[in-house]
């Protein structure tokens, strides 16, 4: 097991293996996301109370869900950086932070667009919306801190500590709607119970969540590859890759 773990730490090995997965991630992601969104926006039944405006859930929930799970992945990678000093873990954190930032922004934006016709307001300082805004600032902070430190190793450690400190915000986002009174409604999907919507609504929602996950996987791979190439530009394998076009 440890052997596999150490192999995973080799940027060259990751570069080779990810190239093989990437077309599948992209193709699967596009198919699932298109299916989920088209089904959700055009064919799923409308809601008895909100009519058609609830349909933004098919974009809002996937972006919000994946924005949070990217942060959990970043925190796991941060532990690996701090304990094992593995370069690839740091490459991952740097590669996906802007993706997380973009998805958090989309979640907040679609939430505001949804909030105006249903609640009657674009924004309210309730626990769920505020903790999600803090997540946006955390992503921004991670990117800024990384850019601010020139030395690669000290940047990696500082960023890892910041990511770990911020991870306490994730359970707060998740449980804010249960611990406190909020305007935001509780989660529709729960791990232990049936979703509180019929299958013709939750199946397309699940498809778009899975599709966005795959697209995130593809984005993570391609951004990590770019970061690896720029970091390892002086090594022999990168020079050979640039000349021959393969590892």
């Amino acid at each position: 097991m440890w052997q596999f773990f150490h192999k995973l730490g080799s940027p060259k090995w990751f570069f080779g293996i990810s190239t093989r997965f990437m077309p599948w991630l992209l193709a699967g992601g596009i198919v699932l996301l298109m299916a989920g969104i088209i089904w959700g926006l055009a064919f799923a039944p409308k809601d008895y109370l909100q009519g058609n405006s609830y349909r933004i859930i098919f974009i809002h929930v996937p972006t919000a869900f994946i924005a949070q799970s990217i942060y959990i992945m970043m925190a796991s990678a941060a532990i690996v950086t701090l304990v094992w000093r593995m370069k690839l873990a740091d490459v991952f954190v740097k590669a996906v932070a802007p993706v997380g930032l973009a998805l958090t922004f989309l979640a907040l934006f679609t939430g505001a667009v949804w909030g105006k016709p249903t609640w009657g307001t674009w924004w309210i300082w309730d626990a769920r919306l505020t903790s999600m805004l803090i997540l946006l600032f955390l992503y921004g902070g991670v990117i800024a801190l990384d850019r601010a430190i020139n030395d690669e190793k000290s940047a990696a450690r500082a960023v890892a500590v910041l990511v770990l400190v911020g991870v306490v915000n994730i359970p707060i986002i998740k449980y804010s709607v249960e611990w406190w009174n909020t305007l935001h409604q509780p989660a529709t999907f729960k791990l232990t119970e049936k979703p509180s919507m019929p299958a013709e609504m939750w199946v397309p929602l699940l498809l778009s969540v899975l599709g966005l996950y795959l697209i995130f996987g593809w984005l993570a791979c391609i951004r990590m590859q770019t970061e690896i190439l720029s970091r390892e530009q002086r090594t022999r394998w990168v020079r050979e890759f640039v000349l021959k076009g393969r590892v």
Binding site: K46, D47, Y48, L49, Q50, Q185, T188, P198, E200, M201
Partner: peptide, 9 residues
């Protein structure tokens, strides 16, 4: 405020 239950009309 609306709840987390969605259903067709």
């Amino acid at each position: 405020k609306h709840d987390e239950n969605y259903m067709p009309p």
